[in-house]
Nucleic acid binder design. Sequence first.
DNA 1: CCGTTTCACTTAACCGCTTAACTGATACGT
DNA 2: ACGTATCAGTTAAGCGGTTAAGTGAAACGG
Lengths: 345, 345
Amino acid sequence: MARPNKRTTLREVAEATGLSTAAVSYALRGKHVSKETEERVRKAAAELGYEADPIARALASGRTSTVGVLAGDLQDLWQQQLMAAIGRELLAGDRYALILDAGGDPERELALAKQLRDQRVDGLLVSPVDPSAEGWSKIADAVPVVSIGDALSRARTAGEVLFDNRAGIDAVLDYLRGLGHRRVTVLTPTGPSTPDRPADVYVREAADRLGIEAVVLPCPQELGEATAMARRVLTNSPDGRRPAGPAPATAVFCFSDSIAYGVYAAAAEASLAVGRDLSVVGFDDHPVSRVLTPPLTTVDWGLTDIAKEAARLAVAAIEGRRVRRKRILCAPRLSERGSAAPPRS
Amino acid sequence: MARPNKRTTLREVAEATGLSTAAVSYALRGKHVSKETEERVRKAAAELGYEADPIARALASGRTSTVGVLAGDLQDLWQQQLMAAIGRELLAGDRYALILDAGGDPERELALAKQLRDQRVDGLLVSPVDPSAEGWSKIADAVPVVSIGDALSRARTAGEVLFDNRAGIDAVLDYLRGLGHRRVTVLTPTGPSTPDRPADVYVREAADRLGIEAVVLPCPQELGEATAMARRVLTNSPDGRRPAGPAPATAVFCFSDSIAYGVYAAAAEASLAVGRDLSVVGFDDHPVSRVLTPPLTTVDWGLTDIAKEAARLAVAAIEGRRVRRKRILCAPRLSERGSAAPPRS
DNA sequence: CCGTTTCACTTAACCGCTTAACTGATACGT
DNA sequence: ACGTATCAGTTAAGCGGTTAAGTGAAACGG
């Protein structure tokens, strides 16, 4: 049963050098000991192959130099990108990122967040499933939380990186209107559409302003389901019970690139050429979008910048630095590629 | 400075119930205490909102009910899928998965593995960058390690989930030969091609057997670079200095779906219709492959099964159970979709 | 009726490190 | 020369649990 894996402990280093454990502890962290002893301790530690036990350290000090990253749903292609980018960003700053996946379940999300807090992560980055959950409040009180994509309405966070959805929606609809589109189907992700996520509202406002007839439909993110949904939309029976409705939309505006992929698939099945017979616009700029045929016109939010800002806010909070603006609003950039064109019909 | 976030501790529960901390500790884990006291303790704990501190518990017991998952490179689309699947699988079994990303750096990979081991993860799943690294040995001695995709040649692992690459390669080349292809370009991922990864060898053998002329070229996974590489391949100057070579290949066999995406992009640029002018086969079955136009014919290794097997092996090792076969060899299934067809030229 | 189990806890020693408070010795200002 | 900083370490009390070993009482067997 007993693993003979004895790590060398602080005490052993202390004995080897004839110092007290406290002295060694201080020495290794360069605190008020003489240059010589510090050197001596370092040498002994190196020889014995000593490395501080992070668990013991965490218990005693309450810190871990680790930050938790909680994905709302790692199935989502965009979140996968986001997590990868954040991990990279934090690692570059010499902090370990522990990534967890809530799998789209709000309860699990909070449970995992608590777990992370209990694990003494120094900071927590979340891309929340349910940003308005009550539970965030207690968590944010115990550890600096930075949220991405949505503000945690009930908690005092250390920062938030948000997307200027209104601007993004305006940009896309402006663009489509400019191309001549009058009837646009908008596919928004299903999920808790809290008042903090008034995408529908923005769409309506922009559509009214531009004289666009917009139909907003919720659509699953998962590719298979998204394709099925897109199929229904393209055959002009969005709700499944309008077999012969009014003229079909000439453009589809997808609130995530993966939804757009579904539309591509459905369009191909229906022998509609994207970028000619049908215009499609995405909203994430996933790397794959660039290599589709035609390349997907989409909104680029600057994933790397998002990751950088989020990491920066978290690190600042951890280090107790005040930060000018805790709320970063990312501006959309329309990446005009080949999937949108003037309508044919 | 002092966070007033006092968690309730074991001692407080003990005082509240008039028991010793040991009794409470036992009671909460259902060990040799009377039914009544157990009940009493549970009630008190619930009332006080007590939850055991995982850090303290880890220090004292050496266990965490957490498993580490180390991705070699989270930039890679397939690994993103894999990590998501594993996380889900473990969560289903009530264990937390801590996902880390080595970012393709072998040194970092080992450093992170050590970090995880020190964090007392009960088990470790890796999709290694450098499976032959010396360092795995020490890590595998301290914690059960399950590797995915490659065997850790220098370590005694608790299990490995491997792909029957030879069978996969045979299947694809058989298939292409059956369609009538004689000249095939094979794009393998760049990276340490250790003797444990003799993809080139398998390709040569199969090609010789089938009378196929196969050119094996290393290709980056990153979509932009893959596209650039594919561009060169399609213009028949794979090495950049053969502007007018022999007849170009009629099919491209990509060792990962993301490479195939690059080929799609390059083909579109060159006005080659995939599935007609050019056959493309992938090797991962990423969800996106299904929605490409045409859908990518690829090798499906059963991602969910891989995740399941890996999780199962890890959990078995953690629980100290012996397992029949520690080495799972995944069989390829060719997902025949639209991207490969008889050659035209 | 007595010795032995069994049961239901308690005692106390850790796990490996941090850190506030204390001790002596040396340096400093006046 | 003397009180006071300053420096370099030491002591010891945690951090919040786990767990081997011990204890006293009740139950049991013969």
